[in-house]
């Protein structure tokens, strides 16, 4: 690796695959070995441009690694000043990385987003659209609607959580005013991916919501460290 160039980091793996291939901007991938984990990197004169194509290239590298080894995917833009600093990082955070590699070994991340219909059985519906609610009625109606939304989301999340090794309910972006919006991440054993997808389809029909499931992704949502 040429001295003086920065290194861009794609992921931390348990062992380097034999054939690494190419990374961002066509740069050859290289392995920087620590005591018990290995960083997969490429060397660059300057930090790579951040755009949609670069994000997909980063993702493609991590997905290729996932086919052969256990990977902790890096957040896009992780760079180090050189291999020696990367080695120092692998040493200083060795326990964390080794622990996380075991957490995600044999599993992938699946993403679920949903817009769930919230059944309105509140007095507001009974009053009809023209009836103006009092302040008390408004607050009560609002509370009941939120409870209904939470129940709908739990009816989706509960059965999915049971199929996952770990799960996270994340803030649904832009959910303001849309109480049925849901976003979850699930760490699922590779052997259970098809069963998970089938359960998502079944729940989407049952709940009559707009539910999308994407994946398998590298486990980005399950490698959070204290520095996040």
């Amino acid at each position: 690796m040429t001295p003086g160039r920065l290194i861009y980091v794609y992921g931390i793996v348990d062992e380097a695959p034999a054939d690494l291939g190419l990374g961002l901007e066509g740069a050859p991938l290289e392995a920087v070995a620590g005591p018990r984990a290995v960083a997969i990197v490429s060397a660059h004169e300057r930090a790579p441009e951040a755009d949609e194509e670069a994000l997909w290239q980063h993702e493609a590298v991590v997905e290729r690694l996932m086919e052969d080894v256990v990977v902790l995917p890096m957040r896009f833009g992780a760079t180090a000043a050189g291999p020696r600093q990367m080695e120092a990082l692998l040493r200083s955070r060795e326990e964390e990385f080794v622990g996380l590699l075991e957490v995600v070994r044999g599993a992938v991340e699946l993403s679920v987003r949903a817009e769930l219909p919230v059944t309105d059985a509140s007095p507001a519906a009974a009053r009809g659209a023209d009836a103006e609610p009092s302040g008390t009625e408004y607050m009560r109606d609002r509370g009941q609607a939120l409870h209904a939304a939470e129940r709908a989301k739990e009816r989706l999340h509960g059965p999915l959580k049971d199929l996952a090794r770990r799960s996270l309910v994340l803030e649904a972006v832009g959910a303001r005013g849309r109480s049925g919006a849901f976003r979850g991440a699930y760490l699922v054993d590779v052997g259970r991916v098809d069963a998970f997808a089938a359960r998502v389809d079944g729940l989407a029909r049952e709940l009559e919501g707009d539910v999308s499931c994407t994946g398998p992704w590298p486990p980005y949502s399950f490698v959070a460290a204290a520095e996040r």
Partner: peptide, 13 residues
């Protein structure tokens, strides 16, 4: 999903 994961998830240095 890509944007949320690569820019808000993953290991941070």
């Amino acid at each position: 999903d890509l944007v949320d994961r690569l820019l808000d998830g993953g290991v941070v240095i």
